[in-house]
C-alpha cells in the first residue's frame, strides 16, 4: 500500500518545471529599470560592456502576468498532493544561488526545476509543514549552465490562531481578604493573627473563632511547610492551567494550611508529608500567588 509519504517521496528527482526559455534575451532596458528600482549605482551594469546584476537571475525567466495553462504539470500535481495533506500555505524559506559565469546582454536563458527532497513533517512557528527543496538550473542558449539555485519553500498547514491568553479565575477581593492578596503581590506570604489571643487563622475572616476578638494583624510565614494532601486534576480543563494540574493543601510550619499549586515535581514524585517551600507565581499583572516546590538538598 502506498502511503502519503511514499507518494511525496516519489517526487524526489522529478522535473517539477520543464526547461522553460526566458521570454526575452538579457537586455539593457530591463537592466536599467532594475538598477534604478534597486538604487544600485554600480557602473558595471550600464557601462561600455554591461553585465546583468546577479540578483536578476530569476527575473529573466519569470513567467509574465498573463494566465498560464495550469493543468497537469508536475508542479500542479505536487501542489495538489500537498494540499491533500493539508499543507495549503506556502512561504519561501531560503535561496542559495551559485553563479558559474556573468550574464550579459544577448544571453538567452532558460530555467529547469527539479525536486531534490521533501522533508518529513516538521513543527514550525507557522504550523506543521514540509520543506520542499528544489534545484533550479539556469542555462544559456548553448546549454551551458550559468547559475544554479537551491530553492526551499515551506508548505504548511496554518496553525490555529493562538488562543487569547486566558487568565486564572479572579479571587473575589473584599474587606476580609484583601490584605492577603495585596501581600502576595509583594511576594509576602502572610497569615492572619488575632491581635488579642495571637491565634493564627486561614482562610482569614473578620472575627477570631477562639476569642471573638475583631482585632487582628498578620505575621509573615517562613514559606516552609509540608504536603498535607493533593489532587492531580485532569478534567474538566480550564484554559488558564496546564494539565495534569497539581493542587495541594500545604500545612505551613506556622500551623495553618492553605490551598496552593505544586511546582518543580511530577505527580509520581509526591508523597504526603514531604517538605515544601514557597515560590512565587506571577500569574498575570494583577495576580501573584504562592505556589510550593519540594525542598531540594542544599547545594554547596
Amino acid at each position: 500500500m502506498t502511503t502519503y509519504d511514499d507518494r511525496l517521496a516519489a517526487f524526489s528527482g522529478r522535473v517539477l518545471v520543464e526547461r522553460r526559455p526566458a521570454p526575452d534575451p538579457v537586455n539593457v532596458p530591463m537592466i536599467r529599470q532594475w538598477v534604478e528600482a534597486m538604487g544600485d549605482a554600480n557602473p558595471r551594469y550600464l557601462g561600455e560592456q554591461p553585465v546583468a546584476p546577479a540578483s536578476m537571475m530569476q527575473a529573466w525567466t519569470m513567467r509574465g502576468y498573463a494566465p498560464t495553462d495550469a493543468s497537469a504539470g508536475a508542479f500542479e500535481e505536487l501542489v495538489a498532493l500537498l494540499e491533500e495533506g493539508g499543507y495549503t500555505s506556502v512561504v519561501a524559506t531560503d535561496s542559495e544561488l551559485d553563479f558559474h559565469r556573468e550574464v550579459v546582454p544577448g544571453d538567452h536563458l532558460s530555467v529547469e526545476e527539479v525536486v531534490e527532497s521533501i522533508s518529513a513533517e516538521k513543527r514550525t512557528g507557522l504550523g506543521a509543514g514540509r520543506f520542499v527543496s528544489t534545484l533550479k538550473t539556469y542555462r544559456d542558449s548553448a546549454d551551458e549552465v550559468v547559475a544554479t539555485q537551491r530553492w526551499r519553500t515551506l508548505r504548511f498547514r496554518p496553525a490555529e490562531p493562538a488562543p487569547e491568553a486566558v487568565l486564572r479565575p479572579r479571587p473575589a477581593i473584599n474587606l476580609d481578604n484583601e490584605f492577603w492578596f495585596t501581600a502576595a503581590r509583594e511576594e509576602r506570604l502572610v497569615v492572619q493573627r488575632c491581635a488579642d489571643c495571637k491565634a493564627l487563622r486561614h482562610p482569614p475572616g473578620p472575627c477570631c473563632p477562639d476569642c471573638t476578638s475583631f482585632a487582628w494583624d498578620t505575621v509573615e510565614a517562613s514559606g516552609r511547610g509540608t504536603l498535607y494532601s493533593y489532587v492531580v486534576a485532569h478534567h474538566p480543563r480550564h484554559p488558564a492551567f496546564d494539565y495534569p494540574l497539581l493542587i495541594a493543601v500545604v500545612e505551613l510550619d506556622e500551623g495553618t494550611r492553605l490551598i496552593t499549586n505544586l511546582t518543580g515535581a511530577t505527580a509520581d514524585e509526591l508523597t504526603v508529608g514531604m517538605a515544601l517551600e514557597v515560590e512565587w507565581l506571577r500569574a498575570d499583572a494583577d495576580l501573584t500567588l504562592p505556589v510550593f516546590r519540594p525542598v531540594r538538598p542544599r547545594e554547596h
Partner: peptide, 25 residues
C-alpha cells in the same frame, strides 16, 4: 463567593477535585 478566592485561582474548582483532596488524605 469570596470563599472561592482560596480555591479557584489555583484551579481547584470542581466537586470531584474538592473530594479528591479528602480522599488522598
Amino acid at each position: 463567593r469570596a470563599a472561592y478566592s482560596w480555591m479557584t485561582p489555583f484551579g481547584l474548582s470542581t466537586p470531584a477535585q474538592w473530594v479528591a483532596m479528602f480522599a488522598r488524605r
